[in-house]
Amino acid sequence: MRYLSAKDIQQTFTMSDAIKADKEALSLYSSGRADIPLRTNIDIPEHNGQSLYMPGYMSGASPALGIKLVSVYPDNIAKHLPSVPATMVTLDAKTGIVNAILDGTYLTQLRTGAVQGAATDLLAKKNAKAALLIGTGGQGMAQLEAMLTVRHLTIVYVSDLDKKRAQDFCDEAKAKFGYTFKTKFQVVDFADDVVPFVDIITTVTTSRRPTFNGSLVKPGAHINGVGAYTPEMAELPAEALVKADRIIFDTMDGVLAEAGDMIQPLKRGIIDKDKFNGELGQVINGRIDGRTEEDQITVFKTVGTAALDVIVADRIVKAAEKEGIGAVLD
């Protein structure tokens, strides 16, 4: 059995690798080759905690099997411990034997950034040059890297409620990506100041209200809604959904059950389900169209699925085994 830390994963698997793996996962999911049971949630009231279990199996030429364990313990912060620790366990699908344990926190950041990268690659204009990133929390850097990986961006504007955090984020991005990508990173006080000019908007927050003015979105823009994952959260503005020509999800069932971005405007009658075009995996499989015109506004919404964790983790493990990376536990 192999143990892979975040550093091991970074050494083994690039963002480009993860985007490719996420496309594979969504293709399999939309083809009916995914067995993803409902998440099991166990409350731990004595310690103000919750333990979550997300298993999955993906069939196909290279099957993958695994389970991600995530705990939510808000009081851990006072103990100088992670409040949302995560661990991924993979099994050999042919034997059922556990073959690896991975840092689940970094895996989640990687596969979540990559699924946005996959959507941006498939839906955004090929000549996109300017982007806006809203939210610089734990998911922010992977979201930025994914956009940079699939498009030659000249500038990325960064917006966050905490201006100092936004500036620190830009400084870190310059240090991390400055030599690889010829992109300028610039803090903006108000996201709406640049919304009319950008080609890509990625919002990754848990906000309960829209993070930008949807009426300002220009023709041809692509929008990614990444952060909101409960019916109460709604970072995407309904106006943007009304204006959109194509609205694509990672998983139809997941988004319509969990994403307030879609649930709330549906309940208010602002949009109806006919507005939703389908899943990104269906675009990959050629079953539905993505962007067909340069001036179309496209929207991608993700809430995540264990299918992404299982495939990405399995592909990481296979690469690590080939390269001899990680600690082998006998």
Score class of each variant (00 low, 15 high):
Val84Pro: 02
His47Phe: 06
Asn76Lys: 12
Leu308Ser: 05
Pro219Met: 02
Thr40Lys: 04
Arg315Phe: 00
Pro210Asn: 06
Pro196His: 11
Ser31Gly: 02
Ser71Cys: 09
Gly290Asp: 04
Gly326Val: 08
Ile284Met: 14
Ser71Thr: 15
Asp162Ser: 14
Glu24Leu: 11
Ile155Cys: 13
Thr211Phe: 10
Glu321Asp: 03
Arg165Phe: 03
Arg209Lys: 15
Phe300Thr: 01
Gly227Leu: 10
Thr112Ile: 02
Asp43Ser: 08
Asn277Arg: 13
Phe177Glu: 04
Lys243Glu: 09
Lys174Arg: 15
Met141Asp: 01
Phe13Tyr: 11
Ile134His: 06
Val217Leu: 08
Pro196Leu: 12
Gln50His: 08
Gly281Thr: 13
Val312Phe: 01
Leu153Pro: 11
Val70Arg: 03
Ala64Glu: 04
Val195Pro: 10
Pro85Tyr: 02
Tyr29Trp: 07
Gly326Ile: 05
Val84Ile: 12
Ile223Asn: 03
Ala306Ser: 12
Ile155Tyr: 07
Phe185Met: 09
Leu161Phe: 06
Leu266Gln: 07
Ala78Thr: 06
Ser16His: 10
Ala320Pro: 02
Gln139Asn: 07
Pro219Gly: 04
Ser159Pro: 03
Gly32Ile: 07
Glu323Pro: 01
Thr149Glu: 14
Glu293Phe: 05
Ile223Gly: 03
Lys243Asn: 04
Asp272Lys: 15
Thr90Arg: 01
Leu241Gln: 15
Asp35Ile: 11
Glu172Met: 14
Phe13Ala: 02
Phe13Ser: 05
Glu293Met: 10
Thr14Lys: 09
Ala78Gly: 07
Ile134Leu: 10
Lys322Ala: 15
Gly135Arg: 05
Ala131Asn: 06
Ala118Val: 12
Asp171Gln: 15
